[in-house]
């Protein structure tokens, strides 16, 4: 039972992070009908930039890759989000914009190209060996009803809750949020209303990348217990955002959050019970469960749980 609750708690935390990632996907998808395959690279880059600002853990002294400052963890997160927002906007302006109106294939390939470049940059600056984030949480945990919950998990859940609340009740009702919704609904009509598509697309990328930075930093801090360090392999977790958005519906922010949570719980539980199932499905099966869930969902509800059904006219 404790094992189950443990898994559940990690799952909810992990799900929260996936919710952030999925929200990032949905924001870009709604604005530009593009799936951003570079999200993984951006996520890892975000974590690295948090590291850049917060520096290595005190006392650990080996051949440390570059870090600029020793700012407090929370300040570093905010700075990292801002940096990634700027990078995202720049990416949209310099690369993605050229592919507007091109076939889906070209856009996917362009984002994959961006992912490759990001990977190269990270390897040049930080190398492949993982680095530790200087978090104030460490491995500390508190017991709630007998279940140990890591402090980073508390923090993550709080952050996700705040982000979700701000997004759904603040941002979506703001001028920019309404403009984004309008653009998602009907691009041409939105342009006719004087909404600048460039602004919307740039802002969407910026927001999405900021969310990726947050998600990456939280993952690298140990939230959800799937990673403990900043490393290039973090980028694989962004791909789990796909099952999350498929589950929730690729154009629904609410669905993305819920889908992320479900996927996180499923993945975490399959990791928890790995020892009971690996004989049948192999080691590290938990990495696959989100994708298998995605296939099952797609078979029965191609538009996800909340997505709008695509109306195809002859």
């Amino acid at each position: 039972m404790t094992q189950f609750l443990n898994g559940l708690v990690s799952g909810v935390t992990l799900g929260g992070i996936y919710a952030l990632i999925a929200l990032g996907f949905v924001i870009i998808y709604r604005a530009t009908h593009t799936l951003n395959f570079a999200q993984g690279g951006l996520l890892a880059l975000g974590a690295y930039i948090s590291y850049l600002f917060s520096g290595p853990i005190r006392g650990v002294n080996f051949n440390n890759p570059p870090s600029l400052l020793r700012l407090p963890y929370f300040v570093a997160i905010v700075l990292s989000m801002l940096t990634l927002a700027a990078i995202g906007w720049m990416l949209e302006v310099t690369v993605i914009r050229r592919f507007r109106g091109k076939p889906v294939f070209a856009v996917i390939m362009a984002t994959l190209g961006v992912a490759v470049v990001l990977g190269a940059i990270m390897n040049v600056v930080w190398g492949t060996s993982p680095v530790n984030l200087n978090t104030p949480f460490g491995d500390k945990f508190s017991k709630v009803g007998g279940v140990p919950i890591k402090h980073i998990d508390f923090f993550t859940l709080a952050v996700v809750a705040v982000i979700a609340l701000v997004f759904f009740f603040g941002f979506q009702r703001s001028k920019l949020g309404t403009a984004m919704k309008a653009t998602a609904f009907d691009q041409e009509a939105a342009i006719a209303q004087g909404i600048s598509p460039n602004l919307i697309f740039g802002a969407s990328w910026a927001m999405s990348c900021a969310l990726a930075a947050l998600a990456g930093t939280l993952l690298a801090s140990g939230a959800g217990s799937v990673a403990t360090q900043v490393s290039p392999s973090l980028s694989a977790f962004a791909l789990v955002g796909f099952p999350a958005i498929v589950l929730g519906g690729v154009d629904s922010p609410e669905g993305a959050v819920l889908g992320g949570l479900i996927i996180g719980i499923v993945q975490s539980l399959s990791a928890t019970y790995e020892e009971n199932i690996y004989r049948y499905v192999g080691h590290d099966f938990w990495r696959l469960t989100p994708f298998i869930l995605m296939i099952i969902i797609l078979l029965f509800r191609p538009s996800g749980l909340f997505g709008t059904k695509e109306v195809r006219r002859v």
Partner: peptide, 24 residues
Amino acid sequence: RLRGNYLAMVSLLLVFLAEHVARN
């Protein structure tokens, strides 16, 4: 049932699945 972006996402599973099978 899946077009464009969706198919690209689903096809990712093939890569992971093949790798998983190869390892296990």
